[in-house]
Simulated scan of single mutants.
Amino acid sequence: MSSTRWAPLLGWMGAAAAAVALAFYAPYERLVLGKLPSAATQRLAETQQALPPEPLPARVLALVAFEGSPREEIQGWIDGLQLQREFRIAWVKLPVVQDPGDEAARRDIERRLRERWPRLAERARLVPLFTDRAAFVREAGLSDPDRASVLVVDREGNVLARAQGPFDPAKAQALRETVLAQNEEALVRPGP
C-alpha cells in the first residue's frame, strides 16, 4: 500500500529528471537546420574580409547552386529579394563544385564561373566552393541539390534559415527577417 502512494511522486521526479537531461543534451536551436562545412565557412570569411571595409555582418544570405541547378532560380531570388538595391543584406553566390583535387583544375573552373558574370560587382559576390557535394548537402541540411537553395548563415556557418527552389514571396520575407534581425542588432550594439 505504501508503494502505491509514492508511485505518482516518483513518476513526476523521473519526468523532471528526463526533462533536465534532454535540456542538456538536445541540440542548440540554431544548429537544428544544419551547418556549412568548415571549408565553406572559411571561404565565406575570407571573401567578406576582402570586401570594402564595413562591419562584418552577423548573418549572410548565401545563394547556393550546384552543377545542374537552374540558374534562373538563383536570378529569381536575386530579383525577388531586390538584392541589387538592398544594401542592408550581405549576400553571396555560392556555387558548390565537386572538388577535382587538382589546383590547376580548380583555377580553370573558377575562371569559367567568373566569365559567366562579366560585371565586377557580380564577380565580387561569387564564392566558388570546391568540396564534396554530397557532404555539403548533408551537412547544410538540404533536401534537393538539383534546386537552388538560399541559406541564412551566421559567422560560424550555422544555417539559421533556408529555402529551396524558385522564388517564393513568403519564404523570401522569412529569409529577409532572419538575415536583417541580427545584422541590425549588431550595428546598434557597441562592440567589445
Rank of each mutant, 00 (worst) to 15 (best):
A105K: 14
P166M: 10
L151T: 04
A90L: 03
R30A: 13
T178P: 01
N158Q: 09
E29K: 13
L10E: 03
R119D: 03
A7S: 09
W117P: 13
A121V: 13
L61G: 04
A90C: 05
L120Q: 09
R5T: 11
V159G: 02
P128E: 03
Q42A: 15
P57A: 06
L63C: 04
K35A: 07
A121T: 14
L10H: 06
Q42G: 13
L126D: 06
F87R: 14
L113C: 01
W6S: 08
G165W: 00
K93T: 07
L61N: 00
G11P: 00
L175P: 07
P100R: 08
P166W: 09
G68V: 08
V127S: 00
V97K: 04
F66D: 05
Q164D: 05
L81H: 00
P55R: 10
A140L: 06
G14S: 12
R111N: 12
W117M: 09
V92T: 04
A16C: 14
E54M: 03
Q49S: 10
T4P: 14
R189A: 06
P128M: 01
W117C: 10
G76D: 11
P53L: 07
L10V: 02
V137D: 10
P37R: 08
S2A: 15
P169N: 09
I89N: 02
E115N: 12
F24C: 13
Q75C: 10
F167W: 05
S3N: 14
R114P: 14
V150H: 07
W77I: 12
E73Y: 11
